[in-house]
Write a protein that binds this DNA or RNA. Structure first.
Length: 373
DNA sequence: AACTATTCCAACCGCAACAAA
DNA sequence: ATTTGTTGCGGTTGGAATAGT
C-alpha cells in the first residue's frame, strides 16, 4: 500500500505493517520503552520513519488499547463531547479509555456522522438540519441512541441529572448560557472557560495536561478533582494514567491505578467481542447510572464536602476498577506484555515512559527507560 | 462467479507547539 | 533570539473488506 512515493534518500517502507515489523517494534519498546521515535527505526531495524513507528505504537500496538466495537455509552459520549469540543479528537479520545483519537475520528466519520444525518441533525453543528434536508436524510434507525439535540443535552440518567448532575450542554446552548452561570452551577461554571475555537480552555487545571483535564472539569470539576480517565491517544494520556495531577487528583489516580494494577483477571481478550472491556463493565455499573464518568461526577458531587477529594477519588477508583482495564488487552502475542496493568509514577512524561517500561519489566523484560539523548 | 460500488480503517501528510542546543 | 529536532494533532488518502448487481 504505497500511498505516495517517498523522496527520502533511503527509501522507507510505507503502508501496512507486517507482523514482523510489529514484532520488531514491540521488541524494541519492550527493551527500551517508547519514545525517542526518531531513533527507533534505526535501533529496531525498521525501514520506517520514527513518526510511522510512533503512530503504529499509539494506534495499534499499545497493549492497553481497547479494540472492538464502540459501546453505546462510548457512542453517546462521543456525540456529546463532539457537540462541545468539535473535532478535537484527542480530547474526545481522552475521555474514552482505550480508544485512540484516530479510532474515534474514524468512528465519527464512518458511523456517527451518517447516523446523525439520518436523524436530521447536522453533525457539524449538532443542530437540526433544514427541514427539507432533514426529511431527505430521514431514515429508520436501528436504535434510539442517536439523539435529538435535546436528547444529547440530557444523556445522563433521569433524577441524577436533576439532583446532582447538571444537564450536559450542547456547544450552542453552553455558549449562550455561560454568562449566567456561577460557581454554584458546578458543571456549567466549569465549562465556562470555552475558548474561541470551541475547546475548553480554562477548566479545572488539575492536570498538568489541559487537554485531558479540561473535560474532567466539564463533567464536574469540583467532583472529579481532576481525575481524568485516560485514553491512549498520546503520551499525555499516560500522564493522567500515571497520576500526575496534583492534589486530590493524585489520590484519585493513585486509587484508580492501584485498582488497575490489581485487576488481572481479564477473561475476554478477543477484539471481536464488542462486549468486552468497557461495555461489559459499564453494564455492571449501569444499575444506577448511564455513563461511568458521569456517575463519578454525580456521586462525588453528592458529598458536597470540602474533603470530597478523597471521596471522589474513592469512587473514581472503584469505578475504574469496574472498567476492567485488563480487558483492553487484545489477544495475540502482545498480550503477554500487559497482564500487569499500569503503575503509578509521579511525573508526566518520564512517568508515562517509566510506566510503559515497567509493564515490560514486570515480565522479565528489560525495563530500561528510554531516550537518553 | 465476476464485476462494481461502498464502507471502513490503518496509515500518511502537513502543520503547530514545544524543548533543547 | 534563532535554529533544529521531536512530538502531537487533525485532515486526508488509499487499500482491503464487504455488499450489491
Amino acid at each position: 500500500m504505497s500511498k505516495r512515493p517517498g523522496g527520502t534518500k533511503k527509501r522507507l517502507k510505507r503502508g501496512l505493517w507486517s507482523p514482523e515489523e510489529d514484532e520488531k517494534l514491540m521488541n524494541h519498546i519492550a527493551k527500551y520503552g517508547n519514545g525517542c521515535w526518531s531513533s527507533v527505526p534505526k535501533i529496531a531495524g525498521l525501514e520506517r520513519c520514527g513518526k510511522s513507528c510512533r503512530l503504529r505504537w499509539i494506534n495499534y500496538l499499545r497493549p492497553d488499547l481497547k479494540r472492538g466495537a464502540f459501546s453505546q455509552e462510548e457512542e453517546d459520549l462521543i456525540i456529546h463531547l463532539h457537540s462541545i469540543l468539535g473535532n478535537k479528537w484527542s480530547q474526545i479520545a481522552a475521555q474514552l479509555p482505550g480508544r485512540t483519537d484516530n479510532e474515534v475520528k474514524n468512528f465519527w466519520n464512518s458511523f456517527i456522522k451518517k447516523k446523525l444525518r439520518q436523524r436530521g441533525i447536522d453533525p457539524a453543528t449538532h443542530k437540526p438540519l433544514a427541514p427539507a434536508a432533514a426529511a431527505a436524510a430521514a431514515a429508520p434507525v436501528s436504535r434510539s441512541a442517536v439523539f435529538s439535540e435535546a436528547e444529547l443535552i440530557l444523556s445522563s440518567p433521569v433524577g441524577e441529572v436533576g439532583q446532582h448532575m447538571p444537564p450536559l450542554v450542547s456547544a450552542e446552548s453552553y455558549v449562550y448560557s455561560r454568562g449566567s452561570m456561577d460557581g454554584a452551577a458546578g458543571v456549567h461554571a466549569a465549562v465556562g472557560g470555552c475558548s474561541d475555537d470551541g475547546s475548553l480552555s480554562s477548566l479545572s487545571g488539575y492536570n498538568n495536561n489541559n487537554q485531558t483535564a479540561d473535560f474532567a472539569g466539564y463533567l464536574d470539576a469540583d467532583a472529579l478533582h481532576g481525575a481524568v480517565i485516560p485514553s491512549v491517544s498520546s503520551s499525555s494520556t499516560l500522564n493522567s494514567m500515571a497520576g500526575v495531577s496534583p492534589g486530590g487528583a493524585a489520590n484519585a489516580n493513585a486509587n484508580a491505578t492501584d485498582e488497575l494494577c490489581c485487576n488481572n483477571n481479564s477473561n475476554n481478550h478477543h477484539p471481536s467481542n464488542s462486549g468486552s472491556g468497557f461495555e461489559s463493565s459499564t453494564t455492571q455499573s449501569t444499575s444506577n447510572h448511564h455513563l461511568p464518568w458521569l456517575e463519578l461526577g454525580s456521586i462525588s458531587s453528592c458529598t458536597e464536602d470540602a474533603s470530597g477529594a478523597g471521596a471522589g477519588a474513592d469512587h473514581y477508583g472503584a469505578a475504574l476498577d469496574e472498567l476492567k482495564w485488563s480487558d483492553y488487552v487484545f489477544d495475540g502475542g502482545y498480550q503477554q506484555y500487559h497482564q500487569q496493568a499500569q503503575c503509578i509514577y509521579g511525573d508526566s512524561k518520564a512517568a508515562a515512559d517509566a510506566a510503559a517500561a515497567a509493564q515490560f519489566d514486570a515480565h522479565g523484560l528489560v525495563g530500561i527507560n528510554w531516550c537518553l539523548n
